[in-house]
Each structure stands twice: as structure tokens, then as C-alpha cells.
Design a protein around this nucleic acid. Structure first.
Lengths: 233, 233
DNA sequence: ATAATTTTGTGTTTAAAAACATACAAATGT
DNA sequence: ACATTTGTATGTTTTTAAACACAAAATTAT
């Protein structure tokens, strides 16, 4: 069995993934149609306007999805962790990609060819229902985020982003360090603020002993306080 | 046949609705489980935290769905027109309502009981796929909106909202007047700005002959220009 | 190793929009 | 019909965050 085969099998056999709803036959169809590609840190996975070839599943690494706004300013709309899907929205909407996807670390991404996916989807109703549920949850998240990003002040937005990163990627073994290492610019683009303001506000949080910063390593020292800052707006 | 029966039949027989995908038997199940209620203008349909009893379909009238943000400020996340669904996101996510829904005019809303809906959904795969597509489209809209509301300046946001209202509700017979009559406060809550700024900016647009205002009646005089203002941010 | 580039950090200025303060008109309730 | 509430309108002040400018540190490329 090759490395790639192992990667695919690991993805398909994850009991928490939607693939656990597949019959052996369906799993076979998906397995046959899967191809994996590796991306270097910073590499483009797809860009706005590209046509989805199928469903992308992140086997390892970390990925950001962003949209370009006024004057090319980017807003990160999703952060993907291993086991997560990339660009599924455009695929299911029957549209071209609406955002751009870039690897934040070296990543392995597996493509499930569109035709095979829809074939299985048509035969497996439970799978379709599970995708409906997943998308409804994501839509709720997006709506909540819209309100946060528009109404909260800088401190609240940054605090929320740090909590979001913690929830998405978790902590390192020390139970404090957020397990993702973003540039200040990415943190800014996630939080709807300029890089200067992200840097400034992170420094302020550090001086208040809410977090500790060491380069790109961010430790949450006072989670309760960070949550309060996020809620207060 | 009662008025209510007619209302239901009209909803179910709309060839553009997802109900057109149902078999006669399935349509019967849905029909049996449907009950309609009328709401007066300004009346609450559900509020954040309520548990969905089923799928709400707007037979007639207009409805807004909003989320409360920092300091109770409301952000309108969706505007519903006849034939549209209300609160389906929470139902499909298996969550309680995340937003609040209020009738903007006297409205008739029909409830499809949850159990019947899911029974049909489990048997009709095409329906499930169509809902996936609908939600994927909505999610794309939500993401785009997030970027607009956070990055565009006041003029751009207001212009976008006016265009959105026009796209959603269309024009009156004169092909100019937007077919929805909102308070300045609602326009502000749709556009992420204060009521004062909505009033001020509407006045400016009127003085520039981009629109014409007469109370709550808004005429788009220069669509191209409005689109340009929206795009420029 | 060293130059080039990117990222991080900080101070200052400027612009945008919120908050506040009224005033008046319109709609609603009694 | 009158009082009360709600909605619309405008001017002024204050706050917030963006824009700009620059410097130092860290990466990356050559």
C-alpha cells in the first residue's frame, strides 16, 4: 500500500467523518476516484472564479479560505483543519469558486471526483441529510460571524478570532499555546482589521496578561478574560 | 375548499418551488401536516432561542430575520418574499433559532410539521440535493455579505442594500419604485449603520438624483450609478 | 554570508462613522 | 381631539480605526 493509499484510507475510515455513513460499495466508488496532491506552505489551492473539479478534503496541514474585498483587502471566511472539506460550497451550489484557498502549512489534499461524489450522494440519503446539517451549521456560523465582525470593536473582534483559532485547532501539549502559527496579517484578515491594529491590539492583550506572544506563538493566559473581551465587543 | 386550503395548494403547486420535486404521495403527506397562521405587520414570528416546530413557508407578505448584536443592535440577515422559507437553517442544523423573525407586513405563514418533512426528505433524494444546493447558495450570499458589510463604506453599503431590496422584491408597475416599504431603522439595520446615517445617506443619494424618496417609497432613478456606488465601496 | 524581501512594531495624522442632542412630523391610542 | 409614542431629519462632538510613515527584526533567496 502506497503512502497516498494510506492517506486516503485514513480519511475514509475516520469514524467522525461523513464517510462513516457510506456502505462498503460506496466507499469503494469514492476510493477509486480519489487523488491526492501536496501543497507547500503559502501555495495556492484554487482561486476565485476557478471551477471545482470535485470535493477537496484536507488530509493533513492547514488551509485558509478568503474573499477579496474592496481594494484587494482579504477577509478570511474559513479555516480548515485536517478531515475538513475545502470549497464544498461552490461545488454544491453548482457555482465557480467564490473565494481563494491557500495552504497555511505544507498540506496534503485529496480530491473526490465530482461525478463519483454525486453518484454516491444520489444513492445515499443519509449522507445528503448529513451534508444538509453540516451546511446549515456553517450558515449559522457565517451569520453570527457577520454580526460579530460588523458590530464588535477591535478588541472584541481580535479576542473572538483568537478563541475561534483555539476552538478550530486546539492547544499544544501545554494546554495554552494555540496550535496554529499565523502571520499578523492573517490574524488581521481574519478579524477585519489592519495589520497595524492586529499587532497593536495583540501587544495590548499581552501587556494585560491575557495572552503571551513569542513570535507567532500565542499563549492564552486568561481564557475567561479573553471570552469576556469577546462578548463585550 | 377553504381559504387556507387554497393558500396551501398554491404554495405546493408552485412549479418554481422545491415542492415540484415531490411525488403525489409525498405532496399528500406534506399537505396533511400543513397549518397556516396569519401575522399582523410588526408581529413576532419566532425569537432567538425558540425551538423550530417545522419548516415555515411564507405564503404572502414580507418577513425580516435579524440577529441581535452588541448592545441589542440588530442586523438583518435575511429578507423573505412569498414562496420563501423562514427559519429553515435552525431546523436543518438541529438547533434552536439563532435569529428573530418579524413580519414586515400582514403575512400568512404555513408550517410544515417537522416529522412529515423529514419523512419526505428521507424518501426523496432529489429534494435533499435541491436543499443542499439552496443552502450552498445562501452560504455564498452570506459570505459575500460579510465582506461587503465589513469593508464597504456607508454609501457602498446603503447602495448595496437598495439593490438587494430591488432584487428581492422587484419594482412596482412604474419599474422604478422598490416594492418594499421599510422604516429608515430597518434600512439601517440591513446596511450595518445607524438610523441617522441611513437617513443622511438616503438624502444625499436623493440630492444626487440617484434615487427619489417620498416617505418610505424609494425610486431608483439611476440604476447604473447606484451599482457603481455599490461596487466602489 | 549577505543582500533582498517580508514581517513585525510604533508613532502620527486623517478620515469615517458613531454618539449625542434636538426638533419636528406622522402615526397611534385613549 | 388630544396626548403619547414612534419615525424622520439635521447639526455637532467624540470616538474609533484606517492611513501613512518609518524603523527594526526576521526570513528567504542568491
Amino acid at each position: 500500500m502506497t503512502d497516498i493509499d494510506q492517506t486516503i484510507v485514513r480519511l475514509l475510515d475516520d469514524p467522525k467523518s461523513i464517510f462513516s455513513l457510506l456502505t462498503d460499495e460506496e466507499r469503494g466508488i469514492i476510493y477509486q476516484s480519489m487523488t491526492c496532491t501536496t501543497y507547500k506552505k503559502g501555495e495556492l489551492i484554487y482561486k476565485e472564479g476557478d471551477k471545482p473539479a470535485g470535493l477537496l478534503s484536507l488530509a493533513s496541514g492547514k488551509v485558509k479560505i478568503f474573499k477579496e474585498g474592496v481594494g484587494g483587502r482579504e477577509q478570511i471566511v474559513r479555516m480548515v483543519k485536517p478531515g475538513g472539506f475545502i470549497g464544498y460550497r461552490a461545488l454544491f451550489a453548482g457555482e465557480n469558486y467564490n473565494g481563494t484557498s491557500v495552504a497555511l502549512e505544507d498540506s496534503t489534499i485529496c480530491l473526490i471526483e465530482k461525478e463519483s461524489l454525486f453518484k454516491v450522494l444520489k444513492s445515499n440519503n443519509e449522507l445528503a441529510l448529513s451534508i444538509i446539517k453540516k451546511m446549515a451549521t456553517e450558515l449559522g456560523f457565517s451569520n453570527t460571524r457577520t454580526v460579530s465582525l460588523t458590530q464588535k470593536h477591535i478588541r472584541g473582534r481580535l479576542a473572538e478570532s483568537l478563541l475561534f483559532l483555539k476552538d478550530t485547532y486546539g492547544f499544544e501539549e501545554d494546554n495554552m499555546t494555540i496550535k496554529v502559527y499565523l502571520s499578523r496579517e492573517d490574524i488581521a484578515n481574519l478579524s477585519n482589521m489592519t495589520t497595524s491594529n492586529a499587532i497593536r491590539t495583540l501587544s495590548t492583550f499581552a501587556s494585560e496578561n491575557v495572552i503571551n506572544i513569542d513570535g507567532r506563538k500565542i499563549k492564552i493566559l486568561d481564557l475567561k478574560r479573553l471570552e469576556r473581551i469577546s462578548e463585550l465587543g
